[in-house]
């Protein structure tokens, strides 16, 4: 049994089909990202897992349970972070974690320590409405974890967070995975999926257009090969194109892409040319496609 099982799921709102036949599984100890643009069906999918809506067709199971029919048995075992969720406007974080701990049959031993973990120790007595958006977001994450969940469903967990908050949330998600928790999260940010997820499910207009690890997605991608690198913005791309045997173009200030076979010898030629010219060579990326490229092509090719 997988921790999360989604089978031919269909969700409709009136005449609009938000989720159109999605099947996927997520296992204990893995982070699965549902990735897609706004309106791709990510939130509708997770809302069926949370028991907020019944599938119009197909089925979902979390820990082998039906999120609607087996609600009472399931809720103590999962942790949920809703998109743009509000709390009582004058509740303090320390009161909120203790309250939610009291609702769970087997909560963490020390709910207050959870506030340290999400970086809210200094704000533990500040009422909710005076917390910043990022602090509210981190409190919502703490509340999702207070019941020691086996499956965690996070809808846009890093949206609206600053760099520090993102790092914190990412490290917590990795810890959860290492503890054997199944983490299912949604994001429309490629960077987030790339950093966090073991596997990525790409949704587009309610359909699953790709599912797999980043390496698998990149390997299955039939797009042209390329090597990306950064260097001085006044680089002589024409000369370098001749050396590498394929077109080199600037993607942005100081960042370039060479549409050539992505191999060690290409990288060696590239590095050699930079050394000859006495130029500084920045980040070089070859072999694996960026998720962004794979994703763009998947979404563009999708019917």
């Amino acid at each position: 049994m997988s921790a999360v099982e989604i089978e031919s799921l269909v969700v409709r709102y009136g005449s609009v089909t938000a989720v159109d036949g999605v099947s996927l599984r997520a296992e204990a100890g893995e982070v699965l990202a549902l990735l897609g643009p706004n309106g791709a069906g990510k939130t509708s999918t997770v809302e069926t897992l949370e028991g907020f809506r019944c599938p119009d067709a197909g089925s979902v199971r979390v820990l082998g349970l039906d999120p609607v029919g087996d609600r009472r048995a399931l809720l103590p075992r999962i942790g949920v972070m809703l998109q743009s969720c509000r709390l009582y406007s004058v509740i303090r974080p320390v009161e909120a974690v203790r309250l939610f701990a009291a609702h769970h049959p087997h909560p963490v031993d020390d709910p207050d320590a959870l506030l340290d973990r999400v970086g809210l120790r200094d704000r533990s007595r500040t009422v909710w409405r005076r917390l910043s958006g990022g602090e509210q977001q981190r409190l919502a994450l703490a509340l999702a974890l207070v019941g020691r969940p086996e499956v965690v469903v996070l809808d846009e967990p890093t949206a609206g967070l600053d760099v520090h908050g993102r790092d914190l949330v990412r490290s917590i998600i990795r810890e959860l995975r290492d503890d054997g928790v199944c983490v299912l999260l949604t994001t429309h940010e490629l960077d987030e999926a790339e950093r966090l997820a073991d596997r990525v499910a790409v949704l587009h207009r309610g359909r699953l257009v790709a599912l797999g690890s980043l390496d698998e997605l990149a390997a299955a991608d039939r797009g042209p090969q390329s090597v990306r690198f950064s260097g001085p913005s006044d680089l002589d791309v024409a000369a370098l194109s001749t050396v590498l045997g394929g077109p080199v173009r600037a993607e942005g200030p100081g960042s370039f892409v060479a549409e050539v076979v992505s191999s060690a010898s290409t990288v060696a030629s590239l590095a050699g040319w930079f050394a000859e010219q006495g130029l500084p060579l920045g980040e070089v990326r070859a072999g694996r496609q960026r998720l962004e490229d794979v994703y763009r092509r998947l979404v563009e090719e999708a019917p």
Partner: peptide, 13 residues
């Protein structure tokens, strides 16, 4: 404000 919705996914029946 969705507080009830959040409580709805806690084990509080």
């Amino acid at each position: 404000y969705g507080v009830l919705k959040r409580l709805g996914v806690s084990p509080l029946t």
